[in-house]
């Protein structure tokens, strides 16, 4: 039943069990995924509001655009690889005969760590070039947005590391399934956020 239709029913006229076992209107997925989606909405709102602030602040006269370091292209590639590997891991854990699970799972985490290391390097380079946090609002936004993104990724890596420990202590593929599915969704989300951020930072 569509949203509008279900809001238009007269509940006092409908008696008896409705909707079978699943409560009508519930999502056909696990509560964990609904929970993660809820969090992703919040994270999206946070990033969007930062970008709105960025645009508003940009229009004030003291703004000096920052030329983004070329290394960001390489970092982007690392994050894409990480996301792709997570997708692969996800396919592995859903398949009947899991193979290469270790490679895919650890590869995904490794590339994410490399991405963060790469981001830190760009920070270092910017500092050396005299682009400090307080020099200009464009710099401040750059550090703030990339930092916030990295913090989100670190949160994901924490969940990933718990999975890694379980995997090393002999957990089977199916036990990791939910955790891998959630991570994959989260990684794709962070990749999309990064691509938007990057496009945004590079074009302003």
């Amino acid at each position: 039943m569509s949203l509008f239709k279900s809001l238009a029913v007269k509940p006092w006229e409908r008696k008896g069990i409705i909707g079978g076992l699943r409560p009508e209107g519930a999502f056909d997925t696990s509560p964990e995924k609904v929970g993660l989606s809820y969090f992703l909405v919040i994270a999206s709102v946070v990033f969007s509001l930062f970008m709105v602030s960025y645009v508003i602040r940009m229009e004030l006269p003291d703004w000096q655009p920052l030329s983004e370091p070329g290394q960001l292209w390489a970092n982007t590639l690392l994050l894409i690889l990480s996301s792709v590997l997570f997708q692969w891991t996800r396919n592995i854990v859903s398949s009947d005969k899991p193979r290469n699970l270790m490679t895919a799972f650890f590869g995904a985490g490794l590339f994410a760590i490399l991405f963060i290391a790469g981001q830190l390097m760009t920070w270092g380079n910017l500092q050396e070039g005299g682009f400090y946090l307080t020099s200009n609002p464009a710099n401040a936004f750059y550090y703030l947005l990339t930092g916030l993104h990295a913090v989100h990724l670190l949160g994901g890596l924490w969940v990933w590391s718990k999975g890694a420990i379980r995997l090393l202590s002999g957990a089977e593929a199916k036990d990791l399934r939910l955790s891998v599915e959630l991570c994959t969704l989260y990684w794709h989300f962070l990749l999309v956020v990064w691509l938007i951020l990057f496009a945004f930072l590079a074009n302003t």
Partner: peptide
């Protein structure tokens, strides 16, 4: 997160939103 997901996913049998 808990309140929203509980309302959406954990309603008992027959309990529609309306």
């Amino acid at each position: 997160l808990n309140y929203a997901v509980t309302v959406l996913q954990y309603r008992c049998r027959g309990l529609t939103m309306m």
